[in-house]
Design a protein around this nucleic acid. Structure first.
Lengths: 348, 348
DNA sequence: CTGAAAGCGCTTACAG
DNA sequence: CTGAAAGCGCTTACAG
């Protein structure tokens, strides 16, 4: 048995080295690498032994060229929230850590008119196995269609099911926001204001639906001017808070559709000399670092974002993974209401 | 002139198509792609015209295999701060957006005993052109040595020059912290406390040096118990704040080595019924979202993190870039002191 | 269950 | 300044 080492003396062992040492064809080695099932136990074992012996690791670049795809998953996002992106990445990496897959991250700009083209070019060049899409761009059906057209697998993450179960991982924003609002109501609040998320955001719509559900359920009337418009940013929350608190009959509690805006509401209250939560209860959404750092610390909603990363990865490339933590048919993961210090009984 | 289209009917044009149409060898096309200088103007022009005509884009996987390297840069980080990572990414992407390079992001766990091995494996498999390393792991010389040994280019980002100018991008933490402390002093503070960053972090050391410089300069004595130890996390800041404020002669101002800890200090003050900044001035570092959202909003230091991303990318793979924004020999970028609402004249 | 051949789309020496 | 040959390390049909 001759060991045909690759030309470049000391370099890493290749599939040829393994084939030669195991006395099989490289195709057979390839079958072992790719987990083909039509292999005799003896051959399989022999090849695996040689692989371990040699410390052979398949060259991803060569596989990519021959396979026509990179052994990588891409994460597409438009900076919804830095911590969210990072936590999601952790989940994805957790899922793929025992595989030989890589993660590539692609921030995009949803305000750019060429976003779709840019993504198409990216997919064409990088040829990932599939893409994971974070909100808000996960809500864009044209992006999902692009993936479908290009034959790239995709999974969309969102506040609710954005696609069929095989192509989405969802949170239950409506449900948990309703729960948060019920907490406000059971604490004694009757005049509850809303700071909406931006128009056209599915998450904003879902959260408002949850708000509505809780109000309806309790038979509470919500005046039109209790519903204010925000854009998920701090300043819009502050402006909304100022408007709400300037009302003749201001709300005693405000649900802001994310933490940044909730922080703005808190500022608006403090500016007026109010004390939170004594004079105004506030609830946010995201459980961002801000929610924790604010004074008083903010009652908010936490997405199971890392688990969503795991689940999304498993949905996308489960066939490349040895182990799965979630069952195939799960696509919704429950959020948690994080009770902190920003809710109190309203003054009478 | 015959157009030899690649076998698979409608697929993308390859280097062969370009070569055939332009009437040159594929090697010549390759030269054009890679910007070789030994090419006659006529040939160059002709080939470029065909490239545009055909919409030819070189296949990165094929190049990677032949070249022995992926046309990508990797970003290694251990979650210093989510916003920092994302802003840095933006900078890197900005720098490479007109090239055909990709960005791969690799979060690592500095507490894992296998971190170095994991990174080595990653580098060996993915074979990026080079790696960009964010603090705190950028401070580890063993990581830099690993890159050197493996023949992978690297650039380290840090609070001060961590390597020779070709291999690092630095902020001037000491200088700007001194400036922040001088502001405290000129506002009238004489009793200034410090919340240090964790042991073994270069950034923590640099910031303390800046603190010391300003104190020395002003001839201010800093009692030992004015120097407290933190770990860059909120809780440690709160604990430090509590300790400082419980002193018989507590400081009237506190510099915390990052915003999270500064938020903790603010909480410690509010718990005691103090008003910030009336009763206590606070300065942080990072200009994180928290600094903006806190009440009062926090005076802090902002790293030019996006520019650092651009500069780091240019240092790493400037030879692959058409345009550069920074001169080759720049390696330090100035931070900015962001004055907000958390400093006031001390009570007497 | 296994293999020999051809090919993925580029680039590296080596010539001339 | 330009090219023909060989090769990067895998995988895909196609056989048997």
């Amino acid at each position: 048995m001759t060991i045909t080492n690759s030309k470049r003396g000391s370099s890493k062992p290749t599939i040829n080295d393994v084939a030669a040492l195991a006395g099989v064809s490289k195709k057979t080695v390839s079958r072992v690498i790719n987990g083909s099932d039509s292999l005799s136990g003896a051959t399989l074992e022999r090849v695996q032994k040689v692989i371990v012996e040699l410390g052979y690791v398949p060259n991803p670049q060569a596989r990519a060229l021959a396979f026509g795809r990179n052994f990588a998953v891409a994460l597409l996002h438009d900076n919804p929230n830095a911590q969210t992106v990072l936590n999601f990445e952790r989940g994805v990496l957790d899922a793929i850590k025992d595989s030989d897959l890589a993660l590539m991250v692609r921030p995009v700009d949803r305000h750019s008119p060429s976003m779709l083209e840019d993504i198409a070019k990216f997919l064409q060049q990088q040829r990932p196995l599939g893409v994971l899409i974070l909100p808000p761009i996960s809500e864009r059906d044209d992006l999902a269609n692009l993936c479908r057209t290009m034959g790239v697998r995709y999974v969309r993450v969102g506040s609710t099911a954005l696609d069929d179960p095989a192509h989405c991982v969802a949170s239950d924003d409506g449900v948990v926001v309703a729960q948060a609002c019920r907490l406000l109501i059971s604490t004694g609040h009757r005049r509850i204001g809303l700071v909406r998320g931006p128009h056209g955001f599915r998450s904003a719509a879902e959260r408002e639906l949850g708000f509505d559900a809780a109000m309806d359920e309790a038979g509470l009337d919500v005046p039109d001017d209790y519903r204010t418009q925000g854009d998920y940013r701090f300043e819009s929350g502050r402006a909304a808070g100022r408007a709400l608190l300037a009302l003749d009959s201001p709300p005693t509690a405000i649900f802001a559709s994310n933490d940044e805006m909730a922080a703005g509401v808190v500022h608006a209250a403090l500016e007026r000399g109010l004390v939170v939560p004594r004079d105004l209860s506030v609830v946010g959404f995201d459980d961002s670092p801000t929610a924790h750092h604010l004074w008083p610390s903010l009652t908010t909603v936490r997405w199971p974002i890392k688990d969503m990363g795991v689940l999304a990865a498993e949905k996308l490339i489960g066939d490349f993974l040895d182990t799965r933590r979630f069952s195939q048919d799960v696509h919704e993961l429950p959020s948690a209401l994080i009770e902190r210090a920003s809710i109190a009984v309203p003054k009478t």
